[in-house]
C-alpha cells in the first residue's frame, strides 16, 4: 500500500531569538531587514546568523532558512 502523501519540504523560515530562547516561524520573508522589522528589532542591535555566517540587512532569505537572531546588548 502506497501513501498518497508525498514528503513535504518545509518552506517556512524558522527564527530563533537569543537570549529569550524563543522560536518563531514565518511563511514569507524576503530579506533580513524584513525579518527584523517583523520581530521588532533593529539592525545595529542584533547579530543575524545563518549556518554559522553573519548576514547583512540587505541579504535575501531562502525558503527553509533557519535564522538565529542574537541580541548584542549587555544586561549588566
Amino acid at each position: 500500500m502506497h501513501s498518497t502523501q508525498e514528503k513535504r519540504y518545509d518552506y517556512r523560515i524558522t527564527v530563533s531569538l537569543e537570549p529569550e530562547n524563543q522560536t518563531l516561524v514565518f511563511d514569507r520573508l524576503k530579506t533580513v531587514l524584513q525579518l527584523l522589522n517583523r520581530i521588532g528589532r533593529k539592525p545595529g542591535r542584533v547579530l543575524v546568523i545563518r549556518d554559522g555566517q553573519l548576514l547583512t540587512p540587505d541579504l535575501i532569505l531562502a525558503p527553509g532558512d533557519k535564522i538565529l537572531v542574537r541580541d548584542v546588548g549587555s544586561k549588566g
Binding site: 542591535r45 547579530l47 546568523i49 553573519l54 548584542v72
Partner: peptide, 12 residues
C-alpha cells in the same frame, strides 16, 4: 567600538 561592533568581533 560600539556594543554591536564588539559582538561582531567576538563572533568573527
Amino acid at each position: 567600538l560600539s556594543e554591536f561592533e564588539t559582538a561582531n568581533l567576538c563572533f568573527l
